[in-house]
Each structure stands twice: as structure tokens, then as C-alpha cells.
């Protein structure tokens, strides 16, 4: 058994060296809940490794190293001690910790409510500050203020999705016909990544989003700006882009507040250019990516509802992209 043990040991150390960081990592927390769970995990991992070594060490010892029969009393003590007493105590402790942690992670938010609706395969996002009368509509990106717990209410349009930002905390499913909720308490500013974790059809793999945690003042400023209508296009190309946008009927599905485009079927584009990513977290927010997406969404995201605009020439697409990118 030495060979695989060594192989496993090598893999484990490789994994540890490789690091647990990443924008979507449970083990590189940026929120209170994720921090608690990461700590819990390291403790449990340590315990598990010790128990595994004891159990299998014993097995190797009695089958390979010393095969002499031992007393039945020892063996029976092992069943009672290892099978009943020890696990009952350890499991009761773990359970007590988990049970008391559960309601804490579900505490109601203070101040901000973010309503997220799962669509195929993107996210409709609405921000509602305490006392505000109207929600600020956005899409495909979640911004949260640091150092406070925000309430997140979850809905789904056609099928079940699941909302998860690993660095901040656990996930909750979004279920058609029900409203579920969760809350998150980020502890540091930074850019993270979230992703849909309930299989939701063909492009489930391509349903992610950027998650940006900001200092509270910066967040308030951002939200105030996000609430404003879109700025008029600047520059020749962008103006032409807006004309194409209107002529192609994009407004039937997409809304750009402050213009004639008021569609509700697709994502709100009012401040599209200000987001960190495009097409629900799968493309960078660049002109090239915008062109690629508009020309043939199907090629980027199989099954996407948006039709292809491959009849538009390169120039038209570039103008459209310039207009959209300018919507910061």
C-alpha cells in the first residue's frame, strides 16, 4: 500500500502548493459565512486525515505486519469504542456547531435588498435600498457593500437555478413559483465570481456573473449612478450604433433607460459598459467580445435565446459595440 499512499501524499501536497486561491474559491473567503466554513473545513480535514490514517493503519497492521490473533476483548472494545462512543461524541459536537451556525448565516439583511431572478442563462438583478421606492434594475453582475449583511431574494423564471458566490457564502436555489432568500456579509472589497450551480439546461456551464464587493461609500455612489438613465451616446460611431440598435429592434427585448428601448425579455443594458463581464460572466467587456456575441450568440452560448445578427456588416457591428460599451 506504500505506493498509492505516497502518490496520495504527493497529490495532497501538490494541491496545497497549488493553492486554494481563485476568484471562485471557498477556501479564499471574502465574507463572514465563507470564512467560518473555510475554518470549519480545515479543522474537519485535519480530523478526517487522522481518523483515516488510524483506521487504515490498523487494517494494514493486522493484515500485513502482525497477523497474529489478538484477544477478542480488544476487538469488541474497538467496536463499542470506535463504533458507538467516539462517533456519538464527535458527531454531536459537530452537529451542535452546525446547527447554531445555520440561523446565523440566514440572518436578515440590514439596509440593502438585492432581488435576483434566474433566467436562461443570465441573471436579472434589482437593487432596493431600505426606504427606496423603486428598484434599480441591472443584470449579470452583483455588487454588494462590504461590512454589512445584505438581503438577497431569489426567483427563477422558467427552470430551477442556484445562486452562489463561493468567496462570500453558501448557495441557495432559485425555484419557479417560490421565492427563496439568503443573506451575505462580505468582509473585504474585491472582485469575485459567482456561478449557477443547479443544472438548468444546455448552457448551464455558461451562466456565471461577476461579484464585486465595494466599500460602503463607493457602493452608494455606484448605486446612485446605476439608478440614472443612460448617458446619450458620444462620438460618431456610438451614435450610429444607437441608430442600428433601434433599427434592428433590439429594444423589443432589452431596456436602456432614458431611450425608447424598454424590452423586459433580455437583460437590462442601461449601464452595460460599466460591468466587468459580458453574457453572464463568460466574456470580457470589450468591443471584440461584444461583436462576437452580437454576431452569433449561439456560437458563444449554445441555446441562447438571442437571435444572431450576422447579417450586419463588420462596420455596423463595431458601431453597435461602441454604443453599448459606452453605456457606462
Amino acid at each position: 500500500m506504500t505506493l498509492p499512499v505516497r502518490a496520495i501524499a504527493a497529490l495532497v501536497s501538490l494541491a496545497l502548493l497549488g493553492g486554494c486561491d481563485g476568484v471562485q474559491s471557498v477556501l479564499s473567503p471574502g465574507g463572514r459565512d465563507a470564512q467560518v466554513i473555510a475554518t470549519l473545513f480545515w479543522w474537519m480535514l485535519g480530523g478526517a486525515v487522522i481518523l483515516w490514517l488510524l483506521m487504515n493503519g490498523l487494517l494494514v497492521y493486522v493484515t500485513r505486519i502482525d497477523q497474529r490473533a489478538m484477544s477478542q476483548r480488544t476487538a469488541e472494545a474497538l467496536i463499542i469504542g470506535g463504533g458507538i462512543v467516539f462517533p456519538t461524541v464527535v458527531l454531536a459536537g459537530l452537529l451542535a456547531f452546525a446547527l447554531s451556525e445555520m440561523p446565523r448565516q440566514r440572518d436578515p439583511g440590514t439596509g440593502l435588498t438585492v432581488r435576483v431572478t434566474g433566467e436562461s442563462w443570465w441573471w436579472r438583478v434589482e437593487y432596493l435600498k431600505d426606504g427606496a421606492t423603486a428598484a434599480v434594475v441591472s443584470a449579470n453582475e452583483i455588487r454588494l457593500p462590504a461590512h454589512q449583511r445584505s438581503e438577497i431574494t431569489l426567483n427563477a423564471h422558467r427552470v430551477i437555478h442556484s445562486f452562489w458566490i463561493p468567496a462570500l457564502g453558501g448557495k441557495t436555489d432559485m425555484i419557479p413559483g417560490r421565492e427563496t432568500r439568503m443573506s451575505l456579509e462580505p468582509t473585504r472589497a474585491g472582485e469575485f465570481r459567482g456561478q449557477c450551480t443547479e443544472f438548468c439546461g444546455e448552457s448551464h456551464a455558461l451562466m456565471a456573473f461577476g461579484a464585486v464587493v465595494m466599500e460602503p461609500e463607493a457602493f452608494d455612489a455606484w448605486l446612485a449612478k446605476e439608478a440614472e438613465p443612460a448617458a446619450p451616446p458620444e462620438g460618431e460611431a456610438a451614435r450610429r450604433g444607437q441608430a442600428i440598435f433601434n433599427a434592428e429592434g433590439c429594444g423589443a427585448c432589452h431596456a436602456i433607460r432614458g431611450t425608447a428601448a424598454t424590452g423586459r425579455v433580455g437583460p437590462d443594458l442601461t449601464h452595460l459598459g460599466g460591468r466587468v463581464s459580458l453574457a453572464a460572466g463568460i466574456l470580457p467587456m470589450t468591443e471584440d467580445a461584444l461583436i462576437r456575441w452580437i454576431r452569433d450568440p449561439e456560437a458563444v452560448k449554445p441555446g441562447a435565446r438571442m437571435p444572431a445578427y450576422d447579417h450586419l456588416g463588420d462596420g455596423d457591428l463595431a458601431a453597435l459595440a461602441a454604443y453599448l460599451e459606452g453605456l457606462t
Binding site: V26, D33, A34, V36, I37, L40, F41, M44, A48, L51, W52, L91, L94, L95, F97, A98, E101, M102, Q105, S162, P166, G169, G170, K171, T172, T197, E198, F199
Partner: peptide, 19 residues
Amino acid sequence: GLTGIMVALAPFDWQVHDT
């Protein structure tokens, strides 16, 4: 079984469920 003990704890499962 040992990872099973971990995922049986609901708050831990909220993190690793469906991963």
C-alpha cells in the same frame, strides 16, 4: 464516509453542494 460527515452539516453543504 469522512467527507460524508462534512457534507451532512448543512452550512458546509451550502458551500459544496453541486460542486
